[in-house]
Design a binder for these strands. Structure first.
Lengths: 187, 187
DNA sequence: TGGCTGGTTCACCGATCAGTATACCTAGGA
DNA sequence: TCCTAGGTATACTGATCGGTGAACCAGCCA
């Protein structure tokens, strides 16, 4: 299926059901029968579209990653000051977190699927690698002295707020504040 | 069973097998049959000891928490300078992380078990609450101006390095360095 | 000696798991 | 008109899931 071509309606419905079910209840805990039922589709169709549960999981993560990158890029593009742009992913995180009370779908997927050969691993690692690279590029563009070290620290702060999201502490404001101060101190 | 009394040898063996299997392969992916087999014990005995898989999971996390707190307390006690003590949990993290390539067992457990009523939730939340409180107390003892905000930020850094542990980036050195600078700047 | 405790062996329960087989239906294009 | 692609419906596989029932056995203490 070329990227341009629209996905079949059945495929879209399966993917939508998979996204909510996998994220809300966990990947291992959700069976393919349940996803087929929730998307109003036969299990046969599901397997014709995705081939296996593992590939469906990878597709679910890839779709989620796509939506998330769009949100981050929007937040970055909205900034006029290059220094503000460096912490723009944290603004996106505020929106994203509100709809994601169960933490980071990619970290959760790695937690559930230990096998490094599982196709979900590539997707999850690529997502974090992309964010780290984005932080580095934005930091360099803003004229930071140590873009690599700064990017690593921003990534850790980002993942830390995501990871503590499901916990009953509100860590976001203090973290965003710290991220901004780090950038300004390094410019 | 009182706390003083030694656990039965069967119970200890079950718990040991559960620790490695649950952490390495995931909680949902590991069945009670497998744990019974690895600990050289009957499933009947396992259920006599723990009652249900959910309680066995909670016991596994509680045992892991106990070992981890011991490690952290040791690291704190080793410090002479109160300012160094604030970041002592990060020294413990270096040791801990080396044996824990699959990230934080407690975060992973929350990822796999969405039901807030699951007994594992209490254990996991208590673990993070304890660490947050420890950071606050250590910061206050070191004379920090804003112990609450500092503790939140240190917790986020701590969870961030744990969460990025399974990823192919080395985030620990930059993070520990940042944590130390934060403490010194706030003293 | 007798009873209790903690452990054993083994068979079993209904439900669910990922994945497949077979056959039928239907809309669209050549 | 016929073929094909994508979908449906239903039934099925063997394995595994969490959890239970029943009978038995060895050591320990009174």
């Amino acid at each position: 299926m070329p990227a341009q071509q629209a996905a079949s309606p059945a495929r879209s419905r399966i993917l939508a059901a998979a996204e909510t079910l996998f994220y809300d209840r966990g990947i291992t805990a959700v069976g393919v029968d349940l996803i087929a039922e929730h998307s109003g589709v036969t299990k046969r169709t599901l397997y014709n579209q995705f081939g296996s549960k593992a590939r469906l999981v990878a597709a679910y993560l890839a779709e989620r990653d796509r939506r998330w990158r769009d949100l981050v890029r929007e937040a970055v593009d909205r900034c006029e000051d290059p220094a503000d742009a460096v912490t723009a992913p944290f603004d996106a995180l505020r929106t994203w977190n509100a709809a994601s009370p169960r933490g980071c779908a990619f970290i959760n997927a790695l937690a559930e699927l230990p096998d490094p050969a599982h196709p979900a691993h590539r997707v999850a690692e690529d997502q974090k690698r992309w964010l780290l690279g984005l932080f580095r590029d934005l930091a360099a563009a803003a004229g930071c002295a140590e873009p690599d070290a700064l990017a690593t620290r921003l990534l850790v702060l980002h993942e830390g707020t995501l990871a503590t999201g499901p916990l009953p502490f509100d860590t976001l404001p203090d973290t965003v504040d710290l991220a901004r101060r780090l950038v300004r101190a390094d410019v």
